[in-house]
Structure formats: structure tokens, C-alpha cells
Measured scan of single mutants.
Amino acid sequence: KELVLALYDYQEKSPREVTMKKGDILTLLNSTNKDWWKVEVNGRQGAVPAAYVKKL
């Protein structure tokens, strides 16, 4: 499985998103959308802005 690093804090704004903190390591589930990537963090799945994460 592919991992990404959170470059910034992000507070979810809808139920389809997830909150992450700078430095979090997230499991990347889907990166086909260039703006929003689906990730899993702390057992929750949701979208985060692609510009806020970097593939490891």
C-alpha cells in the first residue's frame, strides 16, 4: 500500500473528508482525482486536498 505525508494541518469540512495533522502518515487509497485524494487515517476514510500531502 502507498503512504503519503501530511504537509499541513487540514480540518474536515464535510463528512466525506478527514482531518489530518502536519506530519501524519496516511494510507493512500485513491489518487485519480488531481485535486482530492482518498486516504485512510486513524481508521477513517475520506478525502484530503492533494496539494496538502506528498507521496512517500
Rank of each mutant, 00 (worst) to 15 (best):
E12L: 08
K38V: 15
L29M: 08
P49S: 02
N42K: 09
E40H: 05
K21G: 04
V53H: 01
E17K: 04
L7R: 04
Y10K: 00
G46D: 01
A47F: 15
T32Q: 12
S14M: 07
T19L: 03
A47V: 15
Q11C: 14
W36F: 07
E40G: 05
R44A: 06
S14H: 11
I25D: 00
Y52R: 05
D35L: 13
V4Q: 01
K34N: 12
K13C: 12
K13G: 09
V4R: 00
K1Y: 13
V39Q: 00
Q11E: 14
W37K: 01
K38R: 13
W36E: 04
N42Y: 09
W37R: 01
Y8S: 09
K34E: 11
S14F: 07
S14A: 08
A51E: 12
K22A: 13
G23P: 00
N30T: 08
V48S: 00
V53C: 14
Q45G: 07
P15S: 12
P15R: 09
K34M: 10
D24A: 07
K54W: 09
V39I: 07
A47T: 14
K13A: 11
Y10T: 01
Q45Y: 10
N42S: 09
T27L: 14
D9P: 06
L5E: 11
M20F: 13
A50S: 12
V41D: 03
Y52V: 07
T32H: 11
L28W: 01
V41I: 15
V48A: 03
L56F: 10
P15V: 10
V53P: 02
K38T: 15
K13E: 09
Y10S: 01
K21F: 11
Y52T: 08
D35R: 13
V53Y: 01
P15T: 11
V39P: 01
R44S: 06
M20N: 00
E12W: 06
L56V: 10
V53A: 02
L28S: 01
D35F: 15
K54H: 10
P15L: 09
V48F: 01
D24C: 07
I25S: 02
D9G: 06
N42G: 12
V4W: 07
P15C: 13
K55T: 09
A50F: 02
I25V: 11
R16D: 14
N33K: 08
W36K: 03
Y8W: 11
P15E: 12
K55N: 07
K38D: 15
Q45F: 09
T19M: 04
K1G: 12
L29W: 06
E17S: 07
E40I: 09
Y8T: 08
G43R: 03
E17F: 06
V18A: 05
L26W: 02
A50W: 01
N33G: 12
L5S: 05
S31P: 09
Y10A: 00
N33L: 09
P15W: 10
S31I: 09
A51P: 08
L56N: 04
V4G: 14
Q11D: 13
W36R: 03
A50C: 07
N33M: 08
P49W: 04
D9F: 05
R44I: 09
T19G: 09
G46Y: 09
P15Q: 10
S14I: 04
V39T: 01
L7W: 03
E12G: 15
D35M: 12
L26N: 00
I25R: 05
V18L: 14
A51H: 13
T19W: 05
K38F: 15
V18W: 09
K13P: 05
Y52D: 03
S31F: 06
V41W: 09
A51K: 13
G43C: 08
T27C: 12
Y10F: 08
R44N: 06
K55F: 11
Y10H: 03
R16K: 13
K55S: 08
P49D: 03
T19R: 05
K13M: 11
E12D: 05
T32V: 10
W36C: 08
E17V: 05
Y10N: 01
K38M: 15
A51Q: 12
P15M: 10
